[in-house]
Design a protein around this nucleic acid. Structure first.
Lengths: 215, 215
DNA sequence: ACAGTATGGATAGCGACACTCTCCACTATC
DNA sequence: GATAGTGGAGAGTGTCGCTATCCATACTGT
């Protein structure tokens, strides 16, 4: 198919598709003449994936490029693939310093120890967690740390489900894409469910009232 | 204190503080003369809160304004406060249409029913969940829906912890801020813990190898 | 008292980002 | 052979979160 049809089928503007081609998040079509190319269902699928990563996952175009680079070069080491996707999604950690931050790092180390998790305490995610705890502390909400065990238990369950899902993939390629899709969509899914559960729990405890929508 | 000291203490540039004042996310200082104002510890705290919402929660300035508007007008109805904060954080849902979307909505309705959650199935969060499921379907990953029960159980646990945390607040003002902080920081906390748990679980299943950092 | 600095307020500018538009030589199609 | 569409490249657009510049006035140190 040609670019106009790819655009029509995907609902993405031609100019945007050209932009994605330029940015390298969509591979070029197969040349049929100096200025004519042919796009396949693979391009259609890739375009959907790009849109999902951008719209649902909130990734930047550069982040999408990173993730797709990993998906396209499937390593047998899924741990590596997982870490790469995670890094593309959460490129944050710009380490802060200070007493609250140090004690937050201790808290995280202790948590990992208590849980027996095989995650290094200098992992970006662990650093991010320490940063969040330090922020809560600075805001005068040190009680957030008390939530850690329950949050961690829930996160552990989710992670097991995630890895089970990846394990079901028939091929390495599928597993790599499964990691990307699962990481990105899983985050949104979990966030949505948390909000729903909060609303439900809130209604159960405090009553319905204006419940659903305040605006 | 004057603006220069507020800037020094908070690490936020004077120009940025002026910008926040203009945007209404920081209340004006107390006038002492036509062009002189005095800022208190309250401003310092508010500034920290704004930075946390922006940096950790990824909220836009407009989103911060919405959240703070709710925090500053504490309603006795915590369900309302919760919903408002949620809306400011996830203003997404721009409803799509199509067969996958409809069946995703059915799936969500059924899930709510099975779980016995008191969350209306037309709640924005439920819509967001349906959108995610539809996206997964369109991407050729219909198996994501199988993860729902385990995800939901985990989300339920987290939500109970969240509401327990809010319940501990001594005053209504504190509860309102607790909702905002808890919702925003809780999301980041949960995401970080999920990543850590994924890494841990991945190492347990597939071995260490390049584990922590691929780049 | 008076130079030097800081302040609040308003306006304009900047850099990043994700597109979107315009132009071009050329090709496909009617 | 007129018309519409193509790939490619560059410039332009709108939004966002600041950041810089001005200005008249106010505070500060000597």
């Amino acid at each position: 198919m040609r670019i106009a049809e790819l655009s029509k089928r995907s609902g993405v503007a031609v100019a945007t598709i050209k932009y994605y081609l330029r940015e390298g998040v969509l591979p070029p079509g197969e040349r049929t003449s100096p200025n004519q190319a042919d796009y396949s269902e693979k391009h259609q699928h890739r375009l959907r994936l790009v849109r999902a990563l951008v719209e649902v996952g909130g990734l930047s175009i550069a982040g999408v490029r990173d993730v797709l680079g990993t998906v396209d070069a499937p390593q047998p080491d899924l741990t590596w693939t997982l870490s790469t996707v995670q890094l593309a999604m959460f490129p944050i950690p710009e380490a802060t310093e200070g007493p609250t931050r140090s004690s937050a790092e201790d808290t995280v180390t202790r948590l990992l120890d208590d849980l027996g998790w095989s995650c290094p305490s200098d992992h970006p995610a662990a650093q991010a967690l320490a940063a969040v705890l330090a922020t809560a502390d600075d805001l005068g909400h040190p009680g957030m740390a008390d939530l850690l065990p329950r949050y961690a238990r829930a996160a552990g369950e989710v992670a097991k489900a995630d890895l089970d899902y990846i394990d079901r993939s028939p091929s390495l390629d599928d597993a790599a894409e499964g990691v990307a899709v699962g990481t990105v969509l899983g985050d949104s899914m979990l966030a949505a469910l948390r909000r729903m559960a909060q609303v439900s729990e809130s209604i159960n405890r405090y009553g319905e009232k204006a419940g659903a929508k305040p605006g």
